[in-house]
Design a protein around this nucleic acid. Structure first.
Lengths: 207, 207
DNA sequence: TGACAAAGTGAACGGCTCTTCATAGATTAT
DNA sequence: ATAATCTATGAAGAGCCGTTCACTTTGTCA
């Protein structure tokens, strides 16, 4: 379809990617505010001015990173949710996918969380809007799965919005742990814990 | 015991409190980095220099706020955990207390979370250390309660550290919601949801 | 009342960071 | 080979912010 892009264009895109990679590294380790454009330029071996040839400004750099991450994660997660199988199976797979996905992309995961979880909290900027909108697609799909499970009497009759909130909170807690102390426990264990706590009862000896 | 403090001292402390109140307001709304000392001074109706007579520097202002908040919350929460009653009852009361406590102190709660949850994530500064240490006392008490519940076969035999992580993640998710959209649902509902999801089974039709 | 101390003030300083732009270099087209 | 176009450079501009300090005002006490 699209004609082979010119060498110039290919190199331009390559440089863009290199800069994004460095920015991801620095933002995820030091945070957005404490990363200076000069830091990124130095580590990427470009001059500051060059960054501004490829990105509008510092926010655009951040946004490119966030949007890419949120889109990739969202795509993978919605894919699992539309997979065949019972509602419970799909939810289980959602949890597993989330755990492995994040475990394999720790720097990206840090950025993702800084946006989605922290967002609304302390407004990180005006940057969240777009990213949050995308993330919310996942949440509404999750909600639909819960709703359908409730209709089929597979799942207790609790406001599905609240079930979403609960499942996200629970699984995020374990993903946080994964991100902060990656060697502590493998991703599967974390996924199993989320599933057990959420779907099995913790409290023995019936009511 | 201590002799009546002089009027000077009382007013000094009053001014200190006024400044702290303004700082809490601004930090919780705009975030630490984006709040300038000049902003605080203006809103508190003092000159910048006066802030520096009462606080070492900007960090000290933040730390005073955080430490006070974390200490108050921690005290209330440890109190409930050492209350008489079964492990399950104590955990239930912990959840309820947490919900009402935070619902009644929303600006403070925002700061608290920015420290405890977000901390370790993107290092907010070196400020967390002390606050985090205090918060971890609550976590280890929670862990002890779980451990004891497991010993008495009241609670499923899952690594208590993980149960703590899960319970915190779950209840924090609801507390977040409470903070972000206070009119959405009352604190008791949030507490009930945490308890139901954590202690009852979501998944019907036992396998 | 007058002198001493404490509290309050805000302009000025220095450091840091984002962003721009005139210049230099490289690549492509003629 | 030469002109034209695109890319890279980094010093300089401009603004913001934390902090200081010489000075003024207010309160205390003899």
């Amino acid at each position: 379809m699209a004609a082979q892009p010119t060498r110039r264009e290919r190199e331009r895109q390559q440089h863009r990617r290199e800069i994004l990679a460095v920015a991801l590294d620095l933002f995820s380790r030091k945070g957005f505010e404490k990363t200076a454009m000069a830091d990124i330029a130095e580590q990427a071996e470009f001059a500051v001015g060059t960054l501004y040839k490829l990105f509008e400004d510092k926010n655009a750099l951040y946004r490119a990173l966030i949007l890419d991450a949120v889109e990739r994660f969202t795509q993978a997660l919605t894919a699992v949710l539309t997979t065949p199988g019972s509602e419970l199976e799909r939810l289980a797979r959602y949890i597993e996918t989330k755990a492995t996905l994040f475990a394999q992309n720790i720097p990206t995961a840090r950025l993702y969380f800084a946006q989605t979880t922290g967002a609304g909290f302390l407004p990180t900027a005006g940057l969240d809007q777009e990213a949050r909108a995308i993330y919310e697609k996942v949440l509404s799909m999750l909600e639909a799965v819960f709703r359908s499970g409730i209709r089929k009497k597979l799942i207790a009759n609790i406001d599905p919005k609240m079930l979403v909130l609960g499942l996200e909170g629970l699984s995020n807690a374990f993903v946080f742990e994964l991100i902060e102390r990656p060697d502590d426990l493998p991703a599967e264990t974390m996924a199993d814990l989320s599933k057990t706590i959420f779907f099995e009862r913790i409290h023995l000896k019936g009511n």
